[in-house]
Design a protein around this nucleic acid. Structure first.
Lengths: 115, 115
DNA sequence: TTATAATATTATAAACATATAATATTATTA
DNA sequence: TAATAATATTATATGTTTATAATATTATAA
């Protein structure tokens, strides 16, 4: 069976999301549009690198931009992308809960589990 | 501000998901556990490569395994990971809907837009 | 016009991910 | 114990992503 196109698109989408700087950018854009000059003060990377990361997200259609004078404002194209991040956080939460659960059962029989 | 750990964990999680073969594996595991010998027949990659992709997912805690005789069965650890994939598909759907919408407006004024 | 501010682009080296091929491990069966 | 089946590991070559540095573009202001 030939590799299905939805699978490839899904993987590409995930790839363009899969970088700390890009997650950070999306978090900063969550309340609304921001110009690059604002983003750069909140994110600790070089200007050219920020521009490249913005390019990755824009190429994938995840963010969009608008020019105003010398400034460029970016915004999230479809808020549904935030659900992706929320879903990841939820799963990571599940993983942490489970390991805490396993740990607490090691200490079963009383006390806090310390010795 | 130092890079927050949730952001890094989120990016790492997304990275380990961001490959067509790995998305494919999760789809195959959605109905329930499968042995590698079954997976290999449904996915068109080499056995050692499949094993490596399974390793990536397992290291991230996304899948888990159980040995039975000479076979190894893999399963999804937390079904919430499937929400991540669904959310990506939803966003891609939003993107496609929007571009179809834009296209249809180009043809506004009658007809199908063909000439 | 020149200078400046804001952003993007390009080139490049280093780090990382990937697929393949070969080999190793482990469990079962003959 | 030798052969086989199922899976994992390792080495490696190739391709991709990343950060940095340098430079280019664009718009405004002096």
């Amino acid at each position: 069976m030939a590799e299905d196109i939805v699978t490839r698109l899904t993987a590409e989408f995930l790839k363009s999301l899969a970088h700390p700087a890009r997650i950070r950018i999306l978090r900063l854009l969550t309340p609304g549009e921001r110009c690059v000059c604002e983003l750069i003060t909140e994110i600790d990377i070089e200007q050219s690198n920020l521009s490249q990361h913005l390019g990755v997200l824009k190429k994938q259609g995840i963010i969009d931009s608008r020019k105003e004078g010398t400034k460029v404002f970016y915004r999230i194209t479809h808020p549904s992308v935030l659900e992706v991040i929320r879903a990841v956080e939820k799963t990571i939460g599940d993983q942490i809960s489970e390991s805490q659960n396993l740990l607490s059962h090691l200490g079963k029989g009383g006390g806090t589990g310390e010795n």
